[in-house]
Amino acid sequence: MDSLVVLVLCLSCLLLLSLWRQSSGRGKLPPGPTPLPVIGNILQIGIKDISKSLTNLSKVYGPVFTLYFGLKPIVVLHGYEAVKEALIDLGEEFSGRGIFPLAERANRGFGIVFSNGKKWKEIRRFSLMTLRNFGMGKRSIEDRVQEEARCLVEELRKTKASPCDPTFILGCAPCNVICSIIFHKRFDYKDQQFLNLMEKLNENIKILSSPWIQICNNFSPIIDYFPGTHNKLLKNVAFMKSYILEKVKEHQESMDMNNPQDFIDCFLMKMEKEKHNQPSEFTIESLENTAVDLFGAGTETTSTTLRYALLLLLKHPEVTAKVQEEIERVIGRNRSPCMQDRSHMPYTDAVVHEVQRYIDLLPTSLPHAVTCDIKFRNYLIPKGTTILISLTSVLHDNKEFPNPEMFDPHHFLDEGGNFKKSKYFMPFSAGKRICVGEALAGMELFLFLTSILQNFNLKSLVDPKNLDTTPVVNGFASVPPFYQLCFIPV
């Protein structure tokens, strides 16, 4: 009986604490739906499609509103004006990374994606500088992407125009580009180590996009005490870190300090320079996690976009025909596509942009946080508050993009057929937390897609009208449904 009384008292205290925290903070924060004790607004949000729920709530509470995930307040920004004001106009104040408990377990605050403060700034600055020195957006990395595009075309030829699921092959190409940047090595598509790495990356994007992960991140005790797919994700990350550590040891034994070959060499050189400046942010643990982040951000996002792009091109054969006509006119058949071609191919450029806009790969991006107490639109948001960005509300804005739910390359073309930029184009987020590999991803999408369409016609196994382009999961990332196609050599 005594234990029951204690339990009831504990629960009562928890409920009172929950109510007090919510009521004391709500006077400062933007308005929002009334949260339930302990669980907050979790029942009012469709976990399978958070973005749709945010759109519905914005119609009631406006472009800036507050939700509670458990006891934790989260300020939501919906629509271009609110997102721009926060991420661009007040970029420094909104540059923090929001709480992501599962990532905390995986990387302990290291790396480039989930770190904060001085650690994040130094690692991000170093990573950007190193990638630029190796030619991100310049010639040397373009050579690597072109080489991988040629290998991709050869792998597709091996399908002999038979029906195939493109998931694996389209994942190999961007993964190999990242391998060449980090390890100075590309792998054969049949290499077992490479296959294991690909498998872990593919599993992780599916797990991260599941409703279960949303629950884990908002009720963090689940991570330590409950079984579930989150444990598989943590094991996959541990596998990748151990693999990278092996490569780091190989580099330490063979590195030429006067001739760095890749990202690992550059990081080890930085560690050597910083060894007298303790404590340094440049450690082996930081290198492991930064490399894992580059793999995660640079492989599955690009391969998922490529997979979605081919599905949309199957669905819209008239678009595919126009792209192939432009390829034939500008590039021809006797040389590989290059980035200089893009400025002469406005329709193809528009298609690449429209694919990214339409699929809305990361509907709410990753959570941000404010780095200080900030007054925002007459609300006071306390330091450390998590900020949720609705990228969907920007990419699918119906004023900027008429009929935003329709796939239409003319969203990025003017009346004369010239490519038209849009400030609403934010597939990689915006501001200080914009994806480090934005330029690389854009290069890969253009070169891989043009190389495929230069060499193959795409054949659907069903009537294009019957192809479903609805994402199968739409949590962290929008993942396309399973499909097969035939690559018919031109």
Rank of each mutant, 00 (worst) to 15 (best):
Asn289Thr: 10
Ile123Leu: 12
Glu155Leu: 04
Tyr379Pro: 00
Arg26Gln: 10
Leu294Lys: 01
Val75Asp: 00
Phe407Arg: 00
Arg335Ile: 03
Val352His: 00
Ser162Asp: 15
Gly296Arg: 14
Phe376Trp: 14
Lys185Leu: 03
Ser336Thr: 15
Leu67Arg: 00
Leu156Val: 06
Asn474Arg: 14
Thr304Arg: 13
His251Gln: 04
Ile88Pro: 03
Tyr483Pro: 03
Phe94Trp: 12
Tyr68Gly: 01
His230Ala: 08
Tyr61Glu: 01
Glu246Gly: 10
Gly228Gln: 06
Ile389Ser: 03
Glu326Asn: 02
Ser422Lys: 05
Tyr225Gly: 07
Leu71Ala: 13
Thr371Asp: 06
Thr66Glu: 00
Leu395Val: 07
Met136Lys: 15
Ile88Lys: 05
Ser115Arg: 07
Ser210Leu: 06
Leu361Phe: 04
Thr392Trp: 03
Leu485Cys: 14
Leu197Arg: 01
Leu294Met: 12
Arg26Lys: 15
Leu208Gly: 07
Met136Ile: 15
Leu440Pro: 01
Asn196Val: 14
Thr290Arg: 03
Glu272Pro: 08
Met271Gly: 05
Ala309Arg: 00
Leu87Arg: 03
Ser286Gly: 09
Asp256Phe: 07
His230Val: 10
Leu15Phe: 14
Asp143Asn: 09
Ile327Arg: 01
Phe183Arg: 01
Val5Ile: 06
Asn277Asp: 08
Thr392Ile: 02
Thr371Gly: 10
Gln252Glu: 13
Gly98Arg: 08
Lys465Asn: 15
Leu15Asn: 01
Leu467Pro: 01
Val6Cys: 08
His353Trp: 02
Leu458Arg: 01
Ile434His: 09
Asn289Val: 08
Glu281Lys: 09
Lys459Ser: 07
Asp408Met: 05
Gln146Val: 11
Leu57Ser: 04
Met426Asn: 07
Gly111Arg: 05
Asp397Thr: 04
Pro471Lys: 10
Cys216Thr: 09
Arg144Trp: 10
Val8Met: 15
Cys486Gly: 03
Val64Gly: 01
Pro174Ser: 12
Ile381Gly: 00
Gly98Phe: 10
Met443Gly: 02
Asp188Glu: 12
Leu306Gln: 01
Pro464Thr: 11
His316Tyr: 10
Leu485Pro: 01
Phe456Cys: 00
Lys121Met: 11
Val319Asp: 04
Gly442Met: 06
Phe219Asp: 02
Asn258Trp: 13
Glu281Thr: 09
Phe425Met: 11
Glu122Arg: 12
Val330Pro: 00
Ile389Cys: 12
Cys372Ala: 09
Leu467Thr: 05
Ile223Val: 12
Leu11Asp: 02
Asn116Val: 05
Tyr80Val: 05
Val76Thr: 03
Ser23Asn: 14
Pro363Leu: 05
Leu485His: 00
Ala149Arg: 01
Gly417His: 07
Phe282Thr: 03
Ile47Gly: 14
Glu354Phe: 00
Lys118Ala: 14
Val177Met: 03
Met345Val: 02
Leu449Thr: 09
Asn204Gln: 05
Ser429Leu: 06
Asn277Pro: 08
Phe487Pro: 00
Asn176Pro: 01
Lys160Thr: 06
Leu54Pro: 01
Pro37Gln: 02
Arg144Pro: 03
Lys421Ser: 11
Cys175Arg: 03
Lys399Arg: 10
Val330Ile: 11
Ala161Thr: 10
Trp212Cys: 03
Leu102Val: 11
Leu391Thr: 09
Ala297Val: 10
Gln278Ala: 13
